[in-house]
Nucleic acid binder design. Structure first.
Length: 420
RNA sequence: GGGGAGGUGGCUGAGUGGCCGAAAGCACCCGCCUGCUAAGCGGGUAGGGGGUGUAAAGCUCCCUCGAGGGUUCGAAUCCCUCCUUCCCCGCCA
């Protein structure tokens, strides 16, 4: 969330940022509640101060009249405080619904049409034949199965079978190995269910409750991304400034209702209620966050390069970047069969927006007051869609698929999927 | 699931109704002392919020001893609920 001070001092800036992000922000209501809250808070504190003072006097005098007066004061203070607390609760809830501001370098725009292509790597492969889609290939090879998944779970689920399942496992291993060995991240296996406080910390709540799955009767949510457990790992902590940046990488399944995406990407292994992802998270300082953000994006891009997948990097515009992000890049991999780019990674820097919600702070040096950390995250990469890009890019005219070289060691030396 | 014991500052740990936001030790910081180091001596070191202040500093008040409620003039301390950690038993991958 944003500091109340910022909203008090520069409400226009916050209003403008929200408008450009196409989000609503109840600024006027917040300012009004802030005034009311401080007024009641002040009243309560004034009474309390007097009460504390007189209470000490009572301890000496044991004056019955004074005792009666103190009883009244206590009641009065309690009433004022209750009022203040009720207002503050409303205020806090509204604050959680105010979107983040954004970086100067973010282009202004309404939709994905206004995103900027920052760079492009590789080229569309010339296969020499008409490319097929991953689902076409996958079903023909018997490594991807949507029919049985629909029976077992419903639409937007899939089974991977045989070499398909093994390809997914290989990708997870490969990505985790590269990020830990070559990029310096610490591997984590997080809980796949998290509580509400964690969901609030990363800004998945309260605004996006409808896209996450909740366990009935419990304060638990299925993780929509490993970002939630990773970032919240340090919730309510004051970190040692020397230890920053902290770098974590985790594999997890991700669960999303895809509410609002009805009819979109219904075909194929693209937009599922459950998909696999390797996620990168950094916790760092205000001074280094933008630089660490660029590095994290490069770490994600490195995976695509090693796999030899043609991709481009988009700088997301204000209207397409999201509620919590301060700046965001999307990595999109080319899928020849689908004849389009697919988003395989989204890398974001949040400034202190998440850290304020999750109360993650650090002490820059001994004896200095704590400051809110900056958080960064990005997919490195979404496994599911990476499989699509690999299948479509490395398909051969007979419908088999060449295994990219770096993955072969994770697949027992297998060179071609579907070879007989 | 049943029974028992705990959750206090960066850490260890004392504190069972006011003198306690909190002893002591450790760690750390500043200073003194000292060929150097160590030891020793003196001082300092929790977080959040409100008010004041152009701001920093400072001053001042309020809150916080796992969380929330209650009793009381007054709660770290008494009562209730919840969370959580550890131990024993049962069950179980």
């Amino acid at each position: 969330m944003l500091p109340l001070e910022l909203i008090r001092k520069d409400p226009e800036r916050v209003r403008r940022a929200a408008a450009l992000k196409k989000e609503s922000a109840p600024i006027d209501e917040i300012l009004e509640l802030d005034r009311e809250w401080r007024s009641h808070q002040n009243a309560a504190e004034t009474i309390k101060a007097e009460q504390n003072r007189l209470s000490k006097e009572f301890a000496k005098t044991r004056d019955e009249q004074l005792k009666e007066r103190l009883r009244e004061m206590a009641e009065h203070a309690k009433a004022e405080l209750a009022e203040a607390d009720a207002i503050k609760a409303k205020l806090d809830d509204l604050l959680l619904r105010v979107p983040n501001i954004f970086d100067e370098s973010v282009p202004l725009g309404d939709s994905e049409a206004d995103n900027v292509v920052l760079r492009e790597w590789g080229a569309k492969p010339d296969l020499g034949f008409s490319p097929r889609t991953h689902y076409d290939l996958g079903e023909a090879l018997g490594i991807m199965d949507f029919e049985h998944a629909a029976r077992v779970a419903g639409s937007r689920f899939a089974f991977l079978l045989g070499e398909g399942a093994r390809l997914e496992r290989a990708l997870v291993q490969f990505m985790l190995d590269v990020h830990t060995r070559d990029h310096g991240y610490t591997e984590v296996l997080p809980p796949f269910l998290v509580n509400s406080a964690s969901m609030v910390g990363t800004a998945n709540l309260p605004k996006f409750a409808d896209v996450a799955y909740r366990v009935e009767g419990e304060d638990l949510w299925l993780v929509p991304t490993a970002e939630v457990p990773l970032t919240n790992f340090h919730r309510d902590e004051i970190l040692d400034g020397e230890s920053l940046p902290l770098k974590y990488v985790a594999y997890s399944p991700c669960f999303r209702t895809e509410a609002g995406a009805a009819g979109k990407d219904t075909r194929g292994f693209i937009r599922l209620h459950q998909f696999s992802k390797v996620e990168l998270v950094k916790v760092t300082t205000a001074e280094t966050s933008m630089e660490e953000f660029e590095k994290l994006t490069a770490d994600a891009e490195d995976i695509l390069k090693r796999l030899g997948l043609h991709y481009h990097t988009l700088l997301m515009c204000t209207g397409d970047m999201g509620f919590a992000q301060y700046k965001k890049y999307d990595l999109e991999a080319w899928c020849p069969g689908l004849d389009r780019f697919l988003e395989v990674s989204s890398c974001s820097v949040f400034n202190d927006f998440q850290a304020m919600r999750a109360n993650i702070r650090y002490r820059p040096a001994r004896g200095t007051p704590p400051r809110f950390a900056h958080t960064i995250n990005g997919s490195g990469l979404a496994i599911t869609r990476t499989i699509d890009a690999i299948m479509e890019t490395y398909q051969r005219s007979d419908g088999t698929i060449t295994v990219p070289e770096p993955l072969r060691q994770y697949m027992g030396g297998l060179e071609v999927i579907g070879a007989r």
